[in-house]
Design a protein around this nucleic acid. Structure first.
Lengths: 131, 131
DNA sequence: CAGTATCCTCTGAGATACTG
DNA sequence: CAGTATCTCAGAGGATACTG
C-alpha cells in the first residue's frame, strides 16, 4: 500500500461531499455574521457586502437543510424571519473562525510571498500580478 | 453603531479576498494530501480523485503564489517536481484539518437534519431530496 | 514526467421583476 | 419584509492535444 493509495480521497466519499457544501466563502461569512445573534434576511443581505439576494437565499437554505442554521418565522406584520445558529451550527463556528482568523493573522506574510512570486516571474499565469 | 454596521464585511477587505482564495475544497484536499510528505504532480492528480490536470495546476499555482506550498524541481531525468508545505502553509494545516474533521464527526447529525428538512417539505427548492 | 494551451460545455451568480 | 422565478452571461472546469 503506497502513499498515494493511502491518501486517496474518493470523489464520492460522504465527508468530501459535505466538505463541498460547507467549505465556501458565503457560508463562512453568514456564520460569522450570525455569531453575535439572530439576524433577519435583509440584515444579512446588507451586512455581507457583495452577496446577492439569490446567493444569500441559496446559501441560507443549504445551511438550513444541513442543520447549521434555523429559520424562525416571527408572526408579525409584515412578516419577519430570524435566522440563527443551531447547536450543530455552533460546532462549526470554531473551525470557521479559525480559518477566518488565519486570513487576518497571516495576511502580511501572504502578501510578501505574493510579491516575491510575482517578481520572480511566477511562470506565466495571471499576467496582472497583484490580487 | 448598530449590529449590521458592526458586522459589515466589506467586499474589498483584504482578508475576505484571501478567504476567497483559500477557502476552497481543492486547496483543502491538496494540503491534506501533502501533510504526510512531499508529493509529485501526478501523485497528487491520482490521490485527489476527481480533480483534473487543469484544476490541480491552477490550485497548486495559487497555493504556491500565496506561499502555502513550495515547488521544488528535482534535477532528474525525466524531470521531477516535488510539492511540499511551507512553514506558512503548516500554520494553515490545523484550521483545514479542523474543518475536515468536522465533516467526518458530524456527518450523521447532518444526515438526520437533511432527512428531517426534506420530509417536512423543505419549501420548494431542489425537489429531488437527498444529496 | 510535468505541465501549458485550447476548446467547449455547463453551471453559478448577478440583475430584475414579481408574489404572499 | 422575505423571498422566488426568470433571464442572461462570464467564467469555472473537464477533455484533449501538445511541449520541454
Amino acid at each position: 500500500m503506497n502513499q498515494s493509495e493511502r491518501l486517496s480521497f474518493h470523489a464520492d466519499c460522504p465527508s468530501r461531499l459535505l466538505l463541498d457544501e460547507v467549505a465556501d466563502k458565503w457560508s463562512i461569512l453568514v456564520l460569522a455574521a450570525l455569531q453575535h445573534g439572530p439576524m433577519r434576511f435583509n440584515q444579512l443581505l446588507h451586512a455581507i457586502d457583495g452577496i446577492s439576494k439569490k446567493s444569500l437565499s441559496v446559501v441560507l437554505r443549504r445551511l438550513e437543510r444541513n442543520g447549521i442554521v434555523s429559520r424562525d418565522v416571527l408572526k408579525l406584520r409584515p412578516i419577519a424571519v430570524a435566522y440563527c445558529i443551531t447547536p450543530l451550527g455552533w460546532t462549526l463556528v470554531e473551525p470557521f473562525a479559525a480559518l477566518y482568523d488565519w486570513t487576518q493573522r497571516h495576511l502580511d506574510e501572504v502578501d510578501r510571498a505574493r510579491q516575491q512570486f510575482d517578481q520572480q516571474g511566477g511562470h506565466s499565469l495571471s499576467p496582472n500580478a497583484n490580487l
